[in-house]
C-alpha cells in the first residue's frame, strides 16, 4: 500500500553533529504509529523536518505521494499535515472555541473576512462545537484556555490540530506534563480519533504507546533502529539495549 507520509534518505546535520541519519520512514493511511527512542534520538528533529520547521541537509519528504520537501510549514498544513506541540502553544487568553474556530476558519478560507461578524460563521462555529464535543470539551467551549486545567489544555492543543482536518496528524508528546490520573482521558481521545487520519505519535509514556500504536518505529542516534508491531518491539533485544543504555548512562 502507498504511504500517506514518507521520508526518503532524510539527513540533517549541524556541522559534524548528525541529528537525522538517512531516515527512511513510511506512514500508512489510517495508521496508528508511534515513534520512540531515548532522549536525543532525534524524534523531535524528525518531526520538525517533516513539518518544515527545519530544512533537511538532503533527502526527500512526500505527503500523499507528492514531494513537499521545499514547502513552507504553512503550505504543508494546507496539504493536510497537522501537528500538536510538545509544549502547549495555545491562544491562552481566548475562549476554547475561538482556539479551534481560528483553525477551522483558516482551513475553510473564511478567516480573512473583514465585514461579516465572526459569530455569524455558523458552519465554522458548529464544526468547532462538534469537534469540542468529541473531545469532551463541550462544557468548556466558552472558558478561557488559561483557566483550564493542564490536561484539558492538552486536549485543546489536539483540537486545534484536528480543526485543520489533517490527513496526517503528528502528536508530539500529547500526554507530556499531564498527571497520570488524567492521562487516560488523553488516550480515550486518541482512541476516538477518526480512523481516516494517519497518526504518528511521539511519546515517552510507554504504557500509552503500547496501548495505542499498531506499529512502532525506534530511533537511535538519528537513525531508524528498527520498526515493528508492539509485540515485536517489546521483544527486540536491540531496543532494550538502547533503553537500558540510556538508563545506565
Amino acid at each position: 500500500m502507498n504511504a500517506i507520509l514518507e521520508t526518503r534518505a532524510l539527513c540533517k546535520s549541524f556541522g559534524a553533529l548528525v541529528v537525522a541519519d538517512n531516515v527512511e520512514f513510511r506512514l500508512a493511511p489510517g495508521a496508528r504509529h508511534a515513534l520512540i527512542g531515548p532522549n536525543g534520538a532525534g524524534k523531535t528533529t524528525l518531526l520538525n523536518l517533516i513539518t518544515g520547521r527545519i530544512e533537511p541537509t538532503s533527502g526527500e519528504i512526500l505527503l500523499g505521494g507528492e514531494p513537499i520537501t521545499g514547502l513552507r510549514p504553512a503550505a504543508r498544513v494546507k496539504r493536510g499535515l497537522g501537528r500538536t506541540f510538545q509544549i502547549n502553544t495555545l491562544f491562552r487568553q481566548l475562549p476554547v472555541i475561538d482556539n479551534v474556530a481560528l483553525a477551522i476558519a483558516e482551513r475553510d478560507g473564511v478567516a480573512g473576512g473583514m465585514f461579516r461578524p465572526a459569530s455569524r460563521q455558523r458552519a465554522v462555529i458548529e464544526e468547532a462545537l462538534a469537534l469540542l464535543a468529541t473531545l469532551g470539551l463541550a462544557d468548556d467551549a466558552r472558558a478561557r484556555v488559561a483557566d483550564l486545567p493542564y490536561g484539558k489544555q492538552r486536549l485543546v492543543e489536539i483540537a486545534i490540530a484536528l480543526g485543520l482536518k489533517p490527513k496526517v496528524l503528528l502528536l508530539d508528546e500529547p500526554a507530556a506534563g499531564v498527571p497520570s490520573l488524567e492521562s487516560h482521558r488523553i488516550l480515550e481521545v486518541l482512541d476516538g480519533l477518526p480512523r481516516d487520519i494517519a497518526i504518528l505519535i511521539i511519546e515517552h509514556d510507554m504504557d500509552l504507546v503500547f496501548r495505542f500504536a499498531q506499529r512502532i518505529t525506534v530511533l537511535s542516534q538519528g537513525a531508524v533502529l528498527t520498526e515493528g508491531t508492539p509485540a515485536e518491539i517489546g521483544a527486540n533485544e536491540a531496543v532494550r539495549q538502547v533503553y537500558l543504555g540510556e538508563r545506565h548512562g
Binding site: P73, A74, V77, R83, F85, T89, L90, F91, R92, Q93, L94, D98, A101, L102, A103, A105, E106, R107, V110, A111, G112, G113, M114, F115, R116, P117, A118, Q121, V124, I160, G163, L164
Partner: peptide
C-alpha cells in the same frame, strides 16, 4: 469579523497562527 479574530490570534500566539 473573522479577520479581527485572527488578529487577536496573532497577538496571542503568532507561532500557532503560522501553524494553522
Amino acid at each position: 469579523s473573522p479577520f479581527g479574530a485572527s488578529l487577536t490570534g496573532i497577538r496571542e500566539n503568532a507561532v500557532r497562527m503560522h501553524a494553522v
